[in-house]
């Protein structure tokens, strides 16, 4: 049965789009049929991160308003046969997205795919609510930093009240994905630790993505990091997170501090 997943955060710039692309590619790599849907109307970027920016013809709004049929707007990934993209519109007309229209598109996508992954815009406005509206599960992307954690808490509250599932009294699965984690800084007590974030947000952990150059490199070339450098630490963390999304039990890899001995002795004590 198809699963609709929203990748959300409240705060911008924490890695929603990167995570959507990486998780989508990791799931598609295992043969699952995956579509990633960009809900960031006016500021679309998923096409760029996926390397499909030059192949966008129609978009989500075109489909919702009936200008294009769904198959016309879907873009197949050049690397993975089972990975597809439904881009957002670059026009500023956000009101063209109606709840009913989005609902119809999501229903149609459910028929064709195993995973429908909705990349939410930042904020808590209409676009973010529409992105989460029909979700069965949510990935909350959080940086170990106060403003991101606060906004995640807000979004968790909205997932529990504004989604269709929540309104029907059903449970929406929530998974916390900690991104840009710097083990050395956490060990030195300069950055919130994984335990801190988990304790504050009390949401099950999906994965910890270490801060890494590979993530930037991947977006530079328009390839999800799970495909561009599958053996790198962030890619491995995303691949394991995708396995957990499929219900597999995978031991959690907590990024380790790889600093020198002095740092280890004195840094850990301070933490």
């Amino acid at each position: 049965m198809a699963k609709v997943l929203v990748v959300t955060s409240g705060k911008g710039g924490v890695g929603k789009t990167t995570s959507t692309a990486a998780l989508g590619a990791a799931l598609a790599h295992t043969g699952q049929r995956v579509v990633v849907v960009d809900f960031d109307v006016g500021l679309r970027n998923l096409d760029l991160v996926m390397g499909a920016e030059r192949r966008v013809v129609f978009d989500l709004i075109n489909v919702v308003t009936g200008v294009a049929k769904l198959p016309q707007a879907l873009i197949r990934d050049k690397r993975l046969e089972t990975l597809w993209l439904l881009p957002a519109s670059q026009t500023r007309d956000k009101d063209a997205l109606t709840e009913e229209g989005v609902g119809e598109v999501i229903s149609a996508l459910r028929e064709q795919f195993d995973w429908v992954i909705c990349d939410s815009p930042a904020g808590i406005e209409r676009g973010a609510i529409l992105a989460m509206r029909y979700a069965d599960a949510a990935v909350i992307v959080t940086n170990p930093e106060v403003s991101s954690v606060r906004d995640s808490d807000r979004i968790i509250g909205m997932l529990d009240s504004r989604t269709l599932k929540a309104e029907k009294g059903e449970h929406i699965d929530k998974h916390l994905l900690i991104t840009r984690y710097n083990a050395a800084r956490a060990a030195r007590g300069e950055m919130l630790s994984v335990d801190d974030v988990l304790e504050i947000l009390s949401t099950p952990l999906l994965g910890i993505i270490p801060e890494s150059q590979e993530v930037l490199r991947a977006s530079n070339v328009g390839t999800p990091v799970t495909l561009s450098s599958a053996d790198s630490p962030p890619a491995r963390a995303y691949i394991e997170a995708a396995q957990r999304l499929r219900g597999e039990t995978v031991a959690m890899t907590v990024p380790r501090d790889k600093k020198g001995l002095l740092d280890r002795i004195f840094g850990r004590r301070a933490a």
Partner: peptide, 21 residues
Amino acid sequence: FRKDTTAPAARERLQILLAHE
């Protein structure tokens, strides 16, 4: 050698703020 650690302050401020929110 001990660096000033700010993470505990972050945790405490968040806990108070979020309890309120």
